[in-house]
């Protein structure tokens, strides 16, 4: 009798945490092919490589949870990267805005975050008050932000101050700042979703906005805050990107990152029908995407195969989740 209960608990655990099982199996499989995969050095390579997309994912996760989507995150990251980088170029660099001195890093960072706030507010306002479908509203801001980037500068903005690069490139002892930022953002996201009224409201709005309204939730205000959170995460991602690569490129920085972020959130079990999201699952989703990116290089597989495997995993994960959620219902 007891063993049966154990068994059912075990399979429940497996079903709830299937994504972690997949992650572990992937790690074991790749390690079997190349033992260098499971080394501290490679863990650093993997985590620093995925941090920016991770930060974007914690943002877009919230939009998807509210039964929306945000397609503008990659472009917002680029715009934030260019403006903040231009404010923090070294004195010897070819300046984007000649005449403007080198600003302290914090000014550049705050300018980038401010851009996130503005675009996020615009996205949220359009979704909440104009009742635009989030897909359309954020597609619009995606195009606009990318175009502004290209208007601001024809080529990459490079040679940034060490202070500004610290977030993306620096480290405290063995700890890389860019990974630390992702971990902090993970903690903040978890806190918001689990412990705050706002977090509960997002679940409610995503699950059924009419019911949420009846329950006294200010749906419009929740939506605006959701999209602002999402864009601020994206802006932060842009600052990290610029710091990491010592340049911000109008055409290519953050290009298609929104899709990678959506994919990671989705693989992590965030349901496109809204109202369903587990932060631990999303973390696993980010790591799975990272393990595939990095593992494919380690196994010496040519790069197009990476996309095929990613595609299969996205499809598989969503199919599995739909089945699980249907069974629950």
């Amino acid at each position: 009798m007891k063993s049966k209960a154990d068994k059912s608990q075990f399979s429940k655990f497996l079903s709830d945490n299937g994504i972690w099982v997949v992650l572990v199996v992937l790690i074991i499989a790749i390690t079997l092919v190349n033992r260098n995969f499971l080394t501290p050095q490679n863990a650093v390579a993997l985590l620093t490589g995925e941090s920016v997309k991770g930060v974007l994912t914690f943002g877009v996760m919230m939009a998807i949870l509210s039964k929306g989507i945000d397609l503008s995150t990659g472009s917002v990251a680029a715009l934030s990267a260019i403006v903040s980088a231009a404010l923090c170029q070294q004195a010897t660099a070819t300046k984007l805005w000649a005449g403007l001195g080198t600003m302290p890093a914090i000014v550049g960072i705050l300018a980038g975050i401010a851009i996130g706030c503005i675009v996020g507010f615009a996205n949220g306002w359009m979704v909440a008050y104009l009742h635009l479908h989030p897909f359309i509203a954020t597609l619009g801001t995606q195009l606009i932000c990318r175009a502004i980037c290209k208007l601001l500068t024809p080529g990459p903005v490079s040679k940034l101050t060490p202070g500004f690069r610290f977030l993306g490139n620096g480290r405290i002892g063995p700890l890389h700042m860019i990974v630390l930022v992702m971990i902090i953002l993970f903690c903040i996201s978890a806190f918001i979703l689990r412990e705050t009224r706002f977090g509960k409201s997002v679940y409610a709005v995503g699950g059924n906005d009419q019911a949420a309204r009846v329950a006294g939730i200010n749906v419009e205000s929740v939506l605006i805050r959701v999209y602002m959170w999402c864009s601020v995460c994206a802006a932060l991602g842009g600052i990290l990107l610029a710091g990491r690569s010592d340049s911000a490129d109008p055409a290519n920085t953050g290009l298609n990152y929104e899709l990678d972020a959506i994919a990671a959130a989705t693989v992590g079990g965030t349901s496109q029908t809204g109202g369903i999201c587990r932060i631990s699952g999303v973390a696993a989703g980010i790591l799975i995407m990272g393990v595939i990116n990095n593992g494919m290089v380690m196994m010496g597989v040519n790069d197009q195969m990476t996309f095929i495997v990613k595609g299969l995993i996205i499809i598989g994960a969503v199919a599995f989740d739909m089945r699980k959620n249907r069974v629950k219902a």
């Binding site: 099982v21 992937l26 499989a29 597989v301």
Partner: peptide, 24 residues
């Protein structure tokens, strides 16, 4: 559910190792 998880995981592993192996 259990079967799906395992099947998915196995499929990925087989896929990965297969392409890794054949490639190298």
């Amino acid at each position: 559910k259990l079967a799906t998880v395992l099947a998915l995981a196995t499929a990925m592993v087989v896929g990965l190792t297969a392409c890794g192996g054949s490639g190298s």
